[in-house]
């Protein structure tokens, strides 16, 4: 950290928190936990600040959570160190302190990006170093942020809330705004969908919307219907793939009606591609064998109904 000056000085937590909050952008738990006891004993790296208390207000660059902790614990002063008055360089130092490449949230990354943009022109080597501190390359970081900025507001919000990832956001950006706004609302969060399920849900919704030419209100009704269901993805899948789902349901019915409780496992080829079903069973007594045999006879009776599915 050659950009840090050598002089360490003391500043009260209150003064640090009353300065500009420009760099208060890291909301996840920092990789460097200081802890009240270490703060009290002075066993920590000085907090980087822009400015000097003797020359007016200081701007804390990193360590907001720890400084709040110190304020709450009643500490009078904290050791600080001055850094050059440059946003780009301050961000770099903050990221070095943060020490969690690859773990920054979309909101943190976007806040960083906005600060970087405000500090333009930024040398490309700084962007490269910042990219690497974020866990990717500078070019990838820039590209990701530009993709994010090209999204409609409602989708951006959902990405910042971590309701959806950037790739999904791009795929569903054209959905009616009503639906996109829903992704930031409690009814969506209550559904407890994983990123993967969300991606599936929105892909299905988007395809149904396009295929059926749904009006925005109908699209929203469909999304709400899905979110109210115990399995939102399955709900939309039924609508998106009616023929496939009909066959799956029919097979399940037939399987249940012919083999339930018999100990015979019956499976159809994946997606009904193929010309054969698979049967599996074991037996260890005559009674079991008779149950299996009866199930097979039942299957034989309904052979044509099975064959209809392939």
């Amino acid at each position: 950290m050659s950009r840090l000056s050598n002089s360490v000085f003391s500043v009260s937590p209150a003064a640090l928190l009353s300065g500009a909050s420009t760099f208060d952008i890291f909301h996840r738990t920092s990789g460097v936990c200081v802890g009240t006891e270490r703060l009290r004993r002075g066993l920590y790296a000085p907090f980087p600040v822009i400015g000097h208390p003797g020359q007016g207000a200081v701007t804390l660059v990193w360590g907001f959570a720890a400084v709040r902790e110190a304020a709450a614990a009643g500490l009078e002063t904290l050791n600080c160190i001055g850094i050059p008055d440059s946003h780009a360089s301050a961000l770099e130092i903050a990221l070095e302190f943060e020490q969690r490449p690859g773990e920054f949230s979309p909101a943190e990354q976007y806040a960083l990006w906005r600060l970087l943009k405000a500090a333009e022109p930024v040398a490309s080597d700084v962007v490269t170093r910042i990219g690497s501190l974020l866990g990717s390359s500078g070019a990838a970081f820039q590209a990701r942020m530009r993709r994010f900025e090209s999204l409609p507001n409602a989708v951006r919000q959902a990405v910042l809330n971590e309701s959806i990832d950037l790739k999904t956001a791009e795929r569903c950006r054209a959905l009616p705004e009503e639906c996109l706004l829903r992704l930031s609302e409690p009814s969506y969060r209550d559904a407890g969908l994983s990123f993967s399920n969300t991606r599936q849900l929105l892909t299905l919704l988007r395809e149904i919307w396009l295929r059926d030419g749904l009006a925005p209100a109908d699209c929203l009704m469909l999304l709400d219907g899905a979110l109210a269901d115990s399995d939102p993805v399955a709900y939309l899948r039924r609508r998106r793939y009616p023929e496939l789902v009909k066959r799956e349901q029919r097979f399940e019915e037939l399987r249940r009606e012919t083999t339930a409780g018999s100990g015979v496992e019956l499976s159809a080829p994946p997606y009904f591609e193929g010309d054969s079903f698979e049967l599996r069973c074991r037996f260890s007594s005559r009674a079991e064998l008779i149950r299996r045999r009866d199930a097979l006879l039942e299957i034989e009776d309904r052979f044509d109904e099975f064959l209809e599915l392939l």
């Binding site: 396009l210 295929r211 793939y241 009616p242 994946p270 997606y271 591609e273």
Partner: peptide
């Protein structure tokens, strides 16, 4: 529109 039909992995 034709890509919004029902497709399954073969």
């Amino acid at each position: 529109p034709y890509l919004l039909d029902e497709f399954v992995p073969a």
